[in-house]
Design a protein around this nucleic acid. Structure first.
Length: 228
DNA sequence: ACCACGATGAACT
DNA sequence: GTTCATCGTGGTC
């Protein structure tokens, strides 16, 4: 199934009222982190580039979230908040619905959505996305034309979507934000309707501790999931 | 001040 | 399957 750079895309960018109606509200994020993680599958992430360089200013990228992981606080040994707040993990205790973007392995920026009530740490790591719009920009940023290789990993998708340090602490519930998430159902995109999301739950990956619980979620059989 | 390591990805064999 | 580049963070001294 080819990517749908189609009428949906035009609506996303030109019909601001629809955008504002479709954007996920703060109450969506102010819940148990695993519930938020499961409900984020099938939702649409949108970024607006603010790259200082080159010709990709004010360009949109959009894609469907197909894989993510839940991270909690004190009782979660894999969480950055497991020892309480630090300069880095402070933001996990903050207002739900904002981003937590951090630098990993010396190369990569990873995108999280902050969850739970203010003061309770929690975040959902966005691990994989299925591109919907902006693939030429994604290809440019990723230095590859292979569609399946653009956004099938947490570090890959941030590179493709232009998410870096300055995307930390941004409001995902604001359509004027450089990054926000909408419920795509309002766009009546047949392609998205086809993906009746069957959610698979597995242990989180890439961590040593905290693999006992099933906190990784992905859409069954979606080819953009980072690893089966 | 020091240092081990990581919510990864790419390039290998 | 393997190795390794890369550097911010946080724990320890």
């Amino acid at each position: 199934m080819p990517v749908t750079e189609n009428a949906l895309s035009e609506k996303i960018f030109k019909e601001k009222p629809i955008l504002k109606k479709s954007v996920l509200k703060r109450s969506f994020y102010e819940r148990d982190t695993s519930l938020v993680a499961k409900d984020l599958l099938g939702k649409i992430l949108i970024t607006v580039s603010c790259d200082a360089d080159i010709q990709i200013k004010n360009e949109f990228c959009a894609g469907m979230i197909v894989e993510d992981e839940a991270y909690y606080g004190l009782n979660d040994p894999a969480s950055h908040a497991c020892n309480g707040p630090t300069p880095r993990s402070n933001i996990m205790f903050e207002t739900p619905g904002i981003t937590y973007v951090y630098f990993c392995y010396g190369n990569h920026w990873l995108l999280n959505a902050v969850t739970e009530k203010f003061g309770i740490p929690g975040a959902v790591l966005i691990r994989a996305i299925e591109p919907i719009y902006g693939t030429s920009i994604m290809s440019y940023r990723r230095s590859t034309n292979r569609l399946e290789n653009l956004t099938n990993g947490p570090g890959k998708l941030t590179q493709a979507f232009g998410i870096k340090r300055d995307f930390n602490g941004r409001d995902l519930t604001d359509t004027e934000s450089p990054v926000f998430i909408i419920d795509g159902s309002g766009f009546k995109n047949p392609y998205l309707q086809v993906s009746k999301k069957e959610i698979v739950s597995r242990p989180r990956i890439g961590i040593k501790n905290g693999t006992d619980k099933l906190l990784r979620f992905y859409i069954k059989d979606n080819k953009f999931v980072s690893k089966k």
